[in-house]
Design a protein around this nucleic acid. Structure first.
Lengths: 234, 234
DNA sequence: CATGAAACCTGCTAAAACACAGGGTTTAAT
DNA sequence: ATTAAACCCTGTGTTTTAGCAGGTTTCATG
């Protein structure tokens, strides 16, 4: 249950390197944590005490912005890393993280992690590649925020959620978020998000039912932003 | 002249690891390139053929954005890496790079680099840390772009230039850029930049003389953005 | 030193985005 | 079933930003 060998998250970096002997002795030192819905497990500004992997669940990563405005950096689910931003020179987490629904986490302390990286070079290399991809993603996001209109940013956020979490047969996202969260992720206000949702519903591109949101016509929605853009995956 | 041992850029990652035996045999395989002013040496979208280090000079890193609008990702000078964004999974450069003034570059091909990383684990580790710092920087930038006003973004850009290139005794930046470049970097339009420069001149915070720009009162300018912000270094 | 191009500046206008206010609806707990 | 809290929605006024148009300055070059 708690060991990595039986874990199903094949995209997890530890799992991928579990066959290396150097790594196995450290796996037993990882902590398993269970978070209830909306529970925060990383505090922004707190001393970094290691890396987290999402074993199962949904997480949002936040950062306090200007005027205390909340910014959602990204969402994460099964297999993904959280807390890697605190690993460089800074010894404090630059972000906070909280569970959207009940979430099972694996936690490696910085000490253990450091030892693992020293011993298993393939892991270090994978981490480097991971960071480099994250960097590309982040810079694409900079470009988006700098140049997209609010409507485009909101649509882009919906497509991001769609790509990441998908939607069930009834065509609603496999994740439920309040409008405010979409706003904080897209970099705008709740009102704008609501207005744009209204428009998109009228245009038969989106459907809602209470908190639930789903895309009706994915290709058409995609078309609207990919028109003048190259490929922007994030 | 062309070997790393005598190089003065102590912040360069290669120089830092030059004492490792594994690295020295590869240093001879690096290429030295000299770029004239405004010459482009990385084309956006071209196949990635390695990493560049700035030996001496000034470089701007650009990315074509929405509607073909140009976005300046960052500026670089002595000792800094360029082209690392093309190293992950993508085999094409996601950015372009061009010399602002005459610039001397060192170029390692991807092959050589790969070999170096395989052999010198400290280098891989350093690269990982480098990427992780870049990621933090980039995400700070996302937040800025999402939440700052145009005035704040422009001021922030001036402070960035000040931090990175400094200014001489006559209080002008050690780099000359057209207003348009500041706009592309700050994520706004040339007109806005010009307007804000005018205001700042009236407020005795900035001085200009033709293309030259300099900050008169750094702490006061800093204060304006750091007021509601935590520490934002980029 | 004339000249043309590039860079810089300003005023005006329209559009985009935000903020506030107030009302409606859903949800979950008692 | 009731009630409070959280969430959702819409209208209106204001601010911010972008875009255009036209003018001036600066600077390199023949």
């Amino acid at each position: 249950m708690s060991d990595c060998v039986s874990c199903e998250n094949l995209n997890c970096m530890i799992k991928k390197n579990i066959h290396h002997e150097g790594i196995q002795k450290y796996v037993s030192e990882k902590h398993n944590i269970i978070c209830k819905k909306s529970q925060q497990f990383i505090m922004e500004g707190a001393p970094a005490h290691g890396l987290f992997f999402v074993r199962k669940g949904q997480v949002k990563v936040v950062k306090t912005g200007i005027y205390g405005r909340e910014q959602i950096v990204r969402f994460a689910h099964d297999g993904e890393i959280i807390g890697h931003r605190g690993f460089g020179t800074t010894k404090h987490y630059p972000i906070g993280a909280l569970a959207i629904k009940e979430t099972h986490l694996c936690n490696f302390t910085n000490d253990v992690l450091q030892k693992m990286l020293k011993e298993v070079h393939e892991l270090t290399f994978d981490m480097m590649l991971f960071y480099s991809e994250e960097l590309n993603r982040s810079e694409t996001k900079v470009r988006k925020f700098a140049q997209m209109t609010v409507r485009e940013k909101v649509i882009d956020s919906f497509l991001y959620i769609y790509r990441k979490f998908g939607q069930c047969e009834d065509d609603f996202f496999n994740i439920q978020l309040p409008r405010k969260d979409f706003a904080d992720f897209a970099g705008t206000t709740e009102e704008q998000v609501i207005r744009i949702i209204s428009s998109l519903k009228k245009e038969k591109l989106l459907q809602t039912s209470g908190k639930k949101i789903g895309i009706i016509d994915v290709p058409l929605l995609k078309k609207e932003i990919s028109e003048h853009n190259y490929f922007l995956d994030s």
